[in-house]
């Protein structure tokens, strides 16, 4: 390391960059801070003007009340079931489909893959009504199958894993084939263990998407006992008013699993974002 100091304008530039980044970071944190402070206020305090961040008395009861005003225990169970099935289903089906697209030669594989990819360009708004009609016709309203059906596989996941599988040297498979491995064995003992980063990425994204999904559960359920946490949070609002403190208290609690999941999988998550070139 050189001991000579950088010229003043360079150091000044660095300071400016840091200030800008800190401001940006704080602005990202702002909504969370606001959520947390609102969750501890009384309903009247929320409407104070000018707004304040620190409540006069911290109403911890808000959290307990939020969980009991609605059957949040049931909501959590539902969300957990949906997320678990979505993660398991996507890991299993996406990896198998991706392996087929990456390695198995079959007629029209490229064209079929192109069709798959093209579906990624269709926004949810366009397909959500046909999908609802489908679920309704099958009599799957208010059922787990109806809730989780559309998320059990995912084209983006197939695409992600296929691209990853393509980077695994083909010689590895040939070596395994000569060693006596069957196609399924190669997939299971060679390809999958080598794809852990990609699988972790897919697991994280599919968990987040399933957990924070709001529109689909809202549409395919109308019974309270089949609703999910996100729908529960929304239920604190009605046409005339919103119960802000309780809604924010519920939001904080619902956020916790994602934060815990993130902390555990942080390493993979960051790697996954850089790997997939996509942001959450």
């Amino acid at each position: 390391m050189s001991t000579t100091r950088k010229p003043w304008y360079r150091r000044f530039g660095t300071v400016l960059v840091y200030i800008a980044l800190i401001l940006l970071g704080l602005s990202m944190l702002m909504p969370f801070i606001w959520m947390l402070s609102t969750s501890l206020m009384t309903e009247l305090e929320v409407y104070n003007f000018p707004p304040k961040f620190i409540p006069d008395t911290w109403r911890w009861e808000n959290f307990i009340e939020a969980m009991t005003l609605q059957p949040f225990g049931r909501y959590f169970l539902n969300s957990a079931i949906i997320s678990a099935v979505a993660v398991t289903g996507q890991l299993l089906f996406c990896s198998m489909a991706a392996y087929a697209f990456a390695r198995v030669k079959f007629i029209g594989s490229d064209k079929i893959f192109a069709v798959y990819i093209s579906t990624m360009m269709i926004p949810m708004i366009v397909w959500i009504i046909p999908a609802f009609l489908l679920v309704n016709t099958f009599g799957l309203m208010n059922s787990y199958l109806g809730l989780v059906g559309p998320w059990i596989s995912n084209v983006w996941g197939i695409f992600l894993l296929r691209q990853f599988f393509l980077t695994i040297p083909k010689d590895l498979e040939d070596a395994a084939r000569i060693d006596g491995a069957s196609e399924l064995r190669i997939f299971w003992t060679i390809i999958l263990p080598l794809s852990k980063p990609a699988l972790a990425t897919l697991a994280i994204f599919s968990f987040m998407n399933a957990w924070k999904d709001f529109l689909w559960p809202l549409i395919v359920t109308n019974q309270t006992n089949m609703r999910t946490v996100e729908v529960g949070i929304a239920n604190f609002s009605n046409v005339y008013s919103t119960d802000w403190p309780h809604q924010m208290a519920a939001a904080v609690i619902v956020l916790l699993p994602i934060i815990i999941f993130f902390v555990i999988a942080q390493k993979h998550f960051v790697r996954g974002i850089t790997f997939s070139g996509m942001k959450g």
Partner: peptide, 20 residues
């Protein structure tokens, strides 16, 4: 006959060792 039943072994250019 499939590779595994030919009683052969092969050494590859890039070694093709299972990294895990």
């Amino acid at each position: 006959v499939s590779p595994k039943d030919r009683d052969i072994a092969m050494v590859f250019q890039n070694y093709a060792l299972y990294p895990h």
